[in-house]
Simulated scan of single mutants.
Amino acid sequence: MLILITDWLMQFDVGFSVLGYLTLRTILATLTALLMAILIGPKMILWLQKLQIGQTVRDDGPESHLQKMGTPTMGGVLILAAILTSVLLWADLSNEYVWVTLTIVVGYGVVGFVDDYRKVVRKDAKGLIARWKYLWQSIIALAVAIYLYANATSPEQTALVVPFFKDVMPQLGMFYIVVVYFTVVGSSNAVNLTDGLDGLAIVPTILVAGALAIFAYVTGNINFSEYLHIPYIPQVSELVIICGAIIGAGLGFLWFNAYPAQVFMGDVGSLALGGTLGIIAVLVRQEIVLIILGGIFVIETLSVIIQVGSFKLRGKRVFRMAPIHHHFELKGWPEPKVIVRFWIISLILVLVGLATLKLR
């Protein structure tokens, strides 16, 4: 919105053109989301406490988690509000990629909100029935995938970029829709599964958003994309604003979510953030690299799949508890140690993912 005001102000003084620079707008978007989250956070936590919107804890989980019972949840509303406000202020709202991404943010946020509402307000332990949750996630993802495929204007927008190989970019055709679907839905649920300890999911989310911001910037710049042998997709660099907003909102939320957490994000936050990372990776054509960048999310998801599969096929569990962060807790690792070590692993994986830009 402010970019339109900037265009109007430039007729009086060209100095206002500085507000149109992508880098400056990204910084301002990050700071806007950060300050909004930090300033509104305490009031929102008090409000959630008054409404008695508290976290429920699994009976079969680590005993240390029992003290988390009643901690305010649905803090993801704060994250999404900060992201949306910041993006609407600083992004170019004529850019279709911005609206595609915001569709995922809002759509998946609503699905997560309904799930949380049923769990903590209506006291329905199951929340939104799994098949209904996946159905709505699927409808939103498929709608976005079909829109992107139908409106693709260049072969680069539907090509699969294979990391480490500069000349390997096969055309996906209609299989593009399948790739978009699994990337968005898979990423959404992977972040959701990871959100089990204080600050465990939000820091990797921030790190991955930072890496995707770099991919978006170079993919939308014809000089950088040509130099790095990646597809050039005009206007996709505007997604840097959204990545900056995610980083700012995430850091602001971490202020209250760090151990010991004062608030949890809930499904409203984790589903929306995961889906947003997925759609950004799709738009910058880095679905495979997202698997590396979000390796922690992948590991957490695989641990659940392995645990369930092993129990159904062999009647035995591979881990003491899944997702895998609970396994380490039950082995005696203090929660802060699990969290920080997972953060370190996430940082390493993000750096490896970024290395694919040059190692081709």
Rank of each mutant, 00 (worst) to 15 (best):
I348E: 00
P204H: 05
V105N: 08
L330N: 06
N151L: 07
R285E: 10
T301C: 00
I140P: 09
R360F: 14
A272K: 03
G332M: 06
V100M: 13
V340N: 10
I206K: 14
A37C: 15
T101F: 02
I292T: 15
F311E: 11
E287M: 00
D195V: 09
Y149I: 04
L78F: 01
S187V: 10
F182T: 13
T158K: 14
A37T: 15
Y21N: 03
R122V: 11
A81L: 10
L351K: 08
V121A: 10
S138R: 00
N151G: 13
G41L: 08
I202C: 10
P62L: 01
H65G: 11
K331Q: 13
L88G: 01
I279V: 15
W90N: 01
G210W: 00
T194I: 00
I222F: 11
Y108Q: 05
Q11L: 12
V191D: 06
V106D: 07
V318E: 04
W136C: 15
E96D: 12
A322C: 09
G173S: 12
P72G: 00
S237Y: 09
W333Y: 03
P234K: 02
Y108C: 07
R58P: 08
I202K: 01
V308R: 12
F164N: 08
E329N: 09
P170W: 08
M1V: 04
V289M: 09
L48Y: 01
L254S: 00
K331H: 04
G250S: 07
W99I: 01
L34F: 15
G112I: 06
K331T: 07
Q55Y: 08
I305K: 06
L349A: 09
F311P: 11
G127D: 05
D198R: 10
I79D: 05
N223Y: 13
L160A: 10
G41S: 08
V77Y: 03
A216Q: 04
Y21C: 02
Y97S: 06
V106P: 07
S94T: 06
Q52I: 06
A190Y: 13
S225M: 02
T205W: 03
G109S: 05
A82P: 00
G196T: 11
N223V: 12
R131H: 13
V282F: 11
V268W: 06
R25K: 02
A355I: 02
P260N: 06
S237Q: 15
I306L: 14
V308F: 10
L78Y: 00
W136D: 09
N192E: 11
L251A: 03
T85E: 07
L142V: 15
G250Y: 00
G278T: 09
F311N: 07
I3M: 02
E329H: 10
L135Q: 08
V162F: 15
L148M: 13
L207P: 13
A130E: 14
V282W: 07
H327Y: 03
I206A: 10
I344S: 08
K166R: 12
F182Y: 03
T301S: 09
V350F: 00
F253I: 05
L254W: 04
V100N: 14
G269I: 05
V218R: 07
I288Y: 02
A159D: 10
K50Q: 07
G196W: 10
A37G: 13
I247H: 07
D13R: 10
M265T: 04
S86D: 04
Y134V: 05
I241M: 02
L357C: 03
W333D: 04
V14I: 12
L193M: 10
